[in-house]
Design a binder for these strands. Structure first.
Lengths: 100, 100
DNA sequence: ACGATATTTAAGAATTAAATTAAAAGCTCA
DNA sequence: TGAGCTTTTAATTTAATTCTTAAATATCGT
């Protein structure tokens, strides 16, 4: 892996490694959500969620659309969706009960 | 994803998100390496490499064996190998030149 | 045991990231 | 326009990481 690739990938990983941001990304896997939705799911202040969202946006990981005074956030990079799926399978999936 | 899973996964991601640690993990994909090998590949001090290695060890990501006064480091968790492979495919792989 | 080499540990300084708080900016609808 | 939402920005404080340096530990070969 090239120097630049390592730097880029590590910045990306760092941006998704924070528990609040990781949880936000998991929530956005299912469907788009407003800032308020996310705030109540992750249990912190609006300002804090907003700051985390702006970090994710600055990496092009998420995107948003506005509707009235709501901001709907969604995942912008499908590779992130793939990555999170892979991590879930590798690290979160229960061993399937053996059928015996 | 459960609260505990989020916490665990984010700690894991944080531990691999540092550029030096990510590079170390990439180097260890191929084969085991001594601390000195790794040091010259990542261009920093022995002490610093050693500290990064100890972070990776404390997460069970890498493992080592001793031979004389050399410590040979290797990846201990195959899921990490899988994860890195996936990330390389998703984020580092060039689009294959179209065969036309 | 001694000198040489490889690695680790520990303590402190420097850097970077995160949470908090308060104020501002957008938008809607009466 | 202005009251009432939702969201963002900015400044400060707090906390966590990372690097640096120096000293220690471990092992080898003689």
């Amino acid at each position: 892996m090239e120097y630049q690739e390592v730097e880029h990938l590590s910045a990306l990983l760092k941006s998704i490694a924070h528990p609040i941001r990781l949880k936000i990304l998991c929530l956005l896997q299912e469907r788009e959500r407003t800032v308020g939705d996310l705030r109540s799911a992750v249990q912190t202040t609006h300002a804090n969620v907003s700051q985390h969202l702006s970090i994710l946006r600055s990496h092009g990981i998420i995107d948003f659309r506005r509707d009235a005074n709501f901001i709907y956030n969604r995942i912008a990079d499908t590779r992130i969706t793939e990555l999170i799926k892979t991590m879930r399978v590798l690290f979160c999936e229960q061993a399937a009960p053996t059928a015996s």
